[in-house]
Design a protein around this nucleic acid. Structure first.
Lengths: 211, 211
DNA sequence: GTATCAATCACCAAATCAGGTGATTTTAAC
DNA sequence: GTTAAAATCACCTGATTTGGTGATTGATAC
């Protein structure tokens, strides 16, 4: 099966180079070539490529925003970001936008083709240094563990309902217990979390990923 | 340079198999072999290995907790998680704990050795399916954009205070405005966010990263 | 079998909040 | 110079929450 590849890139020489590489390699074809996200969004109508190579630094709509827009329209299309620099913030936002991989532009042709193949098989190719940065992002967003807090399963259940926006009456109805029991659990939760209101409890629960 | 590899694994056959593989491969040596995190934490004192292979499912202290403990003590040591299953939650928590890579146990020996080498060179080896899951995690933590909501700067300020756990009185004092004004802003916030209580507003603000 | 803990329910008082109406002032936009 | 939006303040009423005290039941642990 031939893999259909698209490319969005404002540098003509890279654009031509990559599309030529794709089209001269058996098993690959490149029919979607755009110099901007605007063009890609306008002209990519019914049949998206299997994999889209997206330059991250583009004038007008950036590669990140473009990825989000195109992935919304074509969820099954995979997007590989191409970049010169390894900026944590851009990596993070690209992945949030739905990118399936992240390669440096200096990636040699044969590795690029390999990455495209990997993508279609459900992988997520990343340059080694990018992969390490991706993992380091996790450590910065790691939930600050709340020490010494052990809520009972019932208390966690109540807390989830609080986070969902329920008041005592609704929780009592949903869990088939009395309002006073709800209040009782909430009191215990407050003491364990060291808070004094529903909103504080909700904030703490969400910030520390207790629910 | 010989790469020093450690392993924490409760299954004796895997433990022996891997340590033998390491020790019979030129350029690798395995001097740290443990059957539990407790043992690893107790016995790994001064000279940690370059790379530690960590089973994720261990009795007692789990591989995730153990990774956190050991990485705190030996930040320069790289940890590669080994697992049978691909569970999003465990992947996420392992990476937050400081893992540098994530491999399936079915990874063939030569790939395991390659992954170890990659790790020491600053890479982050992941099985293809794991890599894809890692990226998908980003999309789930991406802020779900709240459509058509434009809070004024003052309203955002009030909302931040709500998230911080303040009540009307505290907000009024902090911002040098009257309690009624706080209430007035809160009313407007509720209408814009389509909520009816402080806790709902806080939950929505945090979930949609409005603050 | 006793102690502890989780979960349940009850009652109470003071504080707080939610939702409503209405008004003034300042600033920015057209 | 009028309009519109943002920010400010006030008053009101009913609902809800918070923080106490205290009690019962069932399960678990020692």
């Amino acid at each position: 099966m031939t893999i259909s590849v698209g490319i969005v890139e404002d540098d003509p020489s890279i654009r031509e180079g990559v599309s030529t590489l794709i089209n001269t390699t058996p098993g690959f074809q490149c029919k979607h070539v755009f110099d901007s996200c605007e063009e890609a969004i306008a002209k990519m109508t019914s049949a998206p490529p299997d994999v889209l190579l997206m330059d991250i630094n583009l004038g007008g709509i950036s590669g990140i925003e473009g990825t989000h827009a195109l992935k919304t329209r074509f969820p099954k299309m995979d997007v590989l970001m191409l970049t010169v620099y390894e900026e944590n913030d851009k990596i993070f936002r690209s992945l949030c936008a739905g990118a399936s991989g992240y390669l440096l532009k200096k990636t040699p042709p044969e590795d690029l083709l390999k990455a495209i193949r990997e993508t279609t098989m459900g992988g997520a190719p990343m340059s080694a240094s990018i992969a390490r940065k991706v993992l380091s992002i996790f450590q910065t967003v790691a939930p600050p563990p709340l020490p010494e807090v052990e809520l009972t399963s019932r208390e966690k259940e109540i807390l989830e309902h609080l986070v969902a926006g329920s008041n005592y009456k609704m929780i009592a109805r949903d869990l088939f217990i009395s309002i006073d029991t709800v209040g009782s659990h909430v009191k215990n939760i407050y003491q364990k979390l060291q808070v004094h209101s529903k909103s504080e409890a909700v904030a703490k629960a969400l910030k520390h990923k207790l629910v």
